[in-house]
Write a protein that binds this DNA or RNA. Sequence first.
DNA 1: GGCCATTTCTGAACACGTTCAAATAACCCT
DNA 2: AGGGTTATTTGAACGTGTTCAGAAATGGCC
Lengths: 220, 220
Amino acid sequence: MSKSEETAARILDSALELFRQEGFDTATMRDIAQKAGVATGAAYYYYPSKDAIVMDFYQRSNEDMQPKLEAALENVKPLEDRLRAVIQVKLDHFAPNRSILRALLRNGADPRHPLSPFSRQTFEIRNLDISWFRRILVDCGMRIPRDLAPQLPGVLWFFQMGVIFFWVIDESPDQSRTARLLELSAKSVTTLIRLSGLPLMRPVRKAALQLVEVVKGDSQ
Amino acid sequence: MSKSEETAARILDSALELFRQEGFDTATMRDIAQKAGVATGAAYYYYPSKDAIVMDFYQRSNEDMQPKLEAALENVKPLEDRLRAVIQVKLDHFAPNRSILRALLRNGADPRHPLSPFSRQTFEIRNLDISWFRRILVDCGMRIPRDLAPQLPGVLWFFQMGVIFFWVIDESPDQSRTARLLELSAKSVTTLIRLSGLPLMRPVRKAALQLVEVVKGDSQ
DNA sequence: GGCCATTTCTGAACACGTTCAAATAACCCT
DNA sequence: AGGGTTATTTGAACGTGTTCAGAAATGGCC
């Protein structure tokens, strides 16, 4: 590991530790630099902004989670269980870093903000993530209507972001509300997908798909 | 109008004009004060923060919209039309101030942020707004399941916030995407409410209501 | 009018994220 | 080893939202 990489790592580690300890807003760039043993400006040599540190954390987190996702899906077949498993892996992984994720999702709904699950900067992460939902739909033992199939992974990803978002702002002890939300909503989502194949539901499904088209058009 | 009130109004007007002209972030408190012909600190005598100016705007907007809502619902009976009418009034009213509303909704999803449709500070505005949805459900010629009825106004308000949010970040010419979204989603929502009464839908409805309970518990 | 309390206003100062010109260190080629 | 190029690091400075001690204006009371 080169000296440069070591400095970068020291800055990242100091930042994340301070973020965890006292929150994103309270930890200043001066604090971070000092803790890393460099001048303030040095932090900006490695990270173009305070937000960029959070972004780096987010990217690394996603890499780290890949094997965990793989493991969690081992021997899990039903869609509902798979959905819960995938989302639970993320909540567990982010659990010690809830306040950092909060900083990430704060401007999260604005696609123009670099720190946004919908931004160009997070395009790759997002795509990788969506492909997990494509994967859990295959071979899950459920018939997916043909017109719904191509859109469903994106929709499920969106659902996942909703749960994560709820978790981030959930102040109940141990985030127990999120646990209930995940339980209930995973069941509901699965039921809805199952029902969506019914002839009676065809108009609703078509309308929903049109809605998805409109929403997708804007955010990418 | 006392001199003090006049100064307050001058500061508010200057701020809003600058926000509209160059956006919330670009307009500085120093600019605002200068345009209003006072020292920087004076702005803080009337508004505890830059955000508070936006909040004042939001409150005044809601007051101004009450008669417009009344007028828009005149002679409109079907739920779908009423839904569209209510939301359209808001979009029209906010149209010249989209960038200001963006500043408001930016931290909008965090209930702890004062500028949030879910915060304590916006409690009254929210309640007043929800009561409009309670009202349009009465006498709309649709049978609402008994268990759904008490929750529906809040759910529809939430739906409205979603549309407004989409509108705020919609960069398509004339926000045409939002127009389509409103059209489609109002239809879908109405259809879903209609279907929710079907015996087949009872389990889904019950599950949805449980979800509503969980979500409501956290944000109020 | 003159005095005091309160309201209103001022502008310097603070802490923050960020920028930048300059200083220093590291590296490479001969 | 020396010289030149690049990579790294420094710390002062900028513009921002916000605070604050005090100055000025205002208003009521005798």
